[in-house]
Nucleic acid binder design. Sequence first.
DNA 1: GGGTATTTGTTCGTATGTATT
DNA 2: TAATACATACGAACAAATACC
Lengths: 252, 252
Amino acid sequence: MRDAPDDRPLTASSLSRGAGVALWRQISETLEREISDGVHAAGARLPTEAELAERFGVNRHTVRRAMAELEEHGLIDVTQGRGTFVHLGAIAYLIGRRTRFHENMRRENRHARLELLDSAIEPAPTAVARELEIAAGVRVIRLDTRSHADGLPLSLASHYFPATRFPGLVEIFRETGSVTASFARYGIADYTRKRTRVSARLPDSREQRLLEIARTRPVMATEAINVDAEGQVVEFGLSSFASDRIQLVFEG
Amino acid sequence: MRDAPDDRPLTASSLSRGAGVALWRQISETLEREISDGVHAAGARLPTEAELAERFGVNRHTVRRAMAELEEHGLIDVTQGRGTFVHLGAIAYLIGRRTRFHENMRRENRHARLELLDSAIEPAPTAVARELEIAAGVRVIRLDTRSHADGLPLSLASHYFPATRFPGLVEIFRETGSVTASFARYGIADYTRKRTRVSARLPDSREQRLLEIARTRPVMATEAINVDAEGQVVEFGLSSFASDRIQLVFEG
DNA sequence: GGGTATTTGTTCGTATGTATT
DNA sequence: TAATACATACGAACAAATACC
């Protein structure tokens, strides 16, 4: 009853109805294959939902379900009013135990930038106080930053420092644009990462906006503790990395 | 024109139509608040989609969109035919540089199990050969495992070992159920993690099934290299961790 | 074990809203 | 402003998985 003789392009690739596989999944798998085969180049615009619905002989909702799947897996980027585009390849970036952000980016030949989003001096939240090994409520400096590589946002971070040890840190950071360079002003020539916790989750709306990632693309959330040569905690950092653009590498 | 005087329960919490916020989002935010407020306890069953549609005065599709959002963020677990349940709190599990799986679980007072899914002796794929520092095509032993804590799956892994150095490893592992214990049989009393790469992504269908996680819950994918006391590479492991149940901790 | 009710999953159709070009 | 393209929402029907008797 449904065989459509030959009035449709080859690409119709006839879905099998009533088999165990949902139509939307067959469509997403077809498009995934076409993308990996290069039928649709990276950055290229895909046909509109209406056109795809026509091509596969299904309702537009069914196409939308397939597109949602592809977006979820980071293969496409969808924007209302503009269209749907094949996702541009990820930028790889490594982070190590003693490696600094700018150093790292230089090695990768990328243009690095650490943008200061916000700063404050405030009483330490209990969790922050515990990690900095100071009493709860003692004042800490908070720097909220966003890192970029070649203009593309890589990560968001909140850096916490004990306020008494680093007077005027905010201004110095604003000047240097680097945590490492700021530490140098206080005589800290070397500091190491004592511990890093890593987890993965989906981004909240702030992260979606500032990292420019889709709702469905996971971030890696890290908690890092940096200590000076004497083992004193000098920084506690909470970061979220766009997992599509970064791979964390721990040497040890 | 639509104001519904007072014939509806308090919980109707009247959505605002035509405001800037989509109905499905208002619903998901309402339910999220109720969950965090304890109106729906962890593990408790939520009302059915039909009931929620009735309660909010919307179509079931609209409720489903809200539920998809909550599932995406790990707040609920949805199973066809069973219903929708508030997500049970995550099990925290730590992994360090010299820490072993069983050791780790003992410290956490959890019942550990390392299940052998598959094993083979095969020519090393190029990527594996590079990491093991052997020639491409040289035979390696592959162990595919699944780890459990208290019966809940935590991670999947493929472990690669140079075949010449570990003859009979498959049988020994089947006997001991532990990589560390197996190594001991070959005189390797100590080994350390040389490098670990971490990234995050959404699970493929195999991972969804074997880790028992929803399509939208990210996994942390790791590549780890273990070396013996002489610095010789003894194992290359590819793992994926259920990020809802594990947090990776790197000490260093 | 088997049949039935319940609950979520898929698919179609239609209409209207909103962002971009 | 107009056209295009994705986003939201409603209604209906059936499929598939599970729970219950």
